[in-house]
Design a protein around this nucleic acid. Sequence first.
DNA 1: GATACTGGTTTTATATTGCAACCACATTTG
DNA 2: CAAATGTGGTTGCAATATAAAACCAGTATC
Lengths: 148, 148
Amino acid sequence: MVKRTSMEGAECPVARSLDAIGDWWSLLIVRDAFDGIRRFGEFQRNLGMAKNILSARLRTLVAHGIFDLVPASDGSAYQEYVLTEKGKGLFPLIIGLRQWGEAFFFEAGEAHSRVVDREQGRPVRPLELRAEDGRLLGPEDCVRVAAE
Amino acid sequence: MVKRTSMEGAECPVARSLDAIGDWWSLLIVRDAFDGIRRFGEFQRNLGMAKNILSARLRTLVAHGIFDLVPASDGSAYQEYVLTEKGKGLFPLIIGLRQWGEAFFFEAGEAHSRVVDREQGRPVRPLELRAEDGRLLGPEDCVRVAAE
DNA sequence: GATACTGGTTTTATATTGCAACCACATTTG
DNA sequence: CAAATGTGGTTGCAATATAAAACCAGTATC
């Protein structure tokens, strides 16, 4: 974990979020969790990452309330990492990351996995930002205003 | 920059995205860019980060086609970093990061900056994921399917 | 023409990461 | 039930990335 003292107690929500999940692995772990991965060994094999840093990452993710460490659902004596509500709140972010990657890092015909809605099996819509009154908003249509 | 050879040419769009912007600083730089920051020195002062690191990050962001390096708009001999279309495509992601932070890292009455729509000055809506037919989708309503 | 600013690079110290070995405990196998 | 194997880590070490500070050439300012 990096120091970034300048970011401690940052007033910007983006900075606080990145402080929790802005490292190289955390969002990939969360992505796997959305795909149903729960066990330490599964994460480790799936991501091909060193066990010590997976261990460290899971520890901070649990500390941040993104995962809960619960007894394994299969009755064994082991434990499982499951997403909390806060962790599940990262879903749009993972989808956003995926859609941006699909749009800008893949050639037209290039194959990649897709996310579909379970009921119809159809691809999900692109995320879009809308105003209170429903207008579609791009970057130029928005301003950040300081805390009141 | 970390190696992560296991991720080279990953078939997962999430992984490719994180390979480009998944480090500690890149998304904060992009956030500042959406707030109108363009110059090296502005980024550096605003983020309080070491100049060599900023230099390296901006270089890779340019290499990834997220920023363009263009002559300064004020007629001086200096240059500016401006977001490309690909860079602007990160807007929903930054908003997602912000909304998640607002929801889970701030107390009820705690002050923080807000993003409002320029036309009405009203807060933007929360990002939401919808199916092709418009149904609102949560994490449980989606599945990732392998590339066909 | 002197001074200060901009946009970096270099150097050096420190922190983080990745790898491999190791270990305790749980589970499965024969 | 003993041996073998799987699970979920920790520890030590080498490689790498980061941070801080000093430095520097080209601009702009006075």
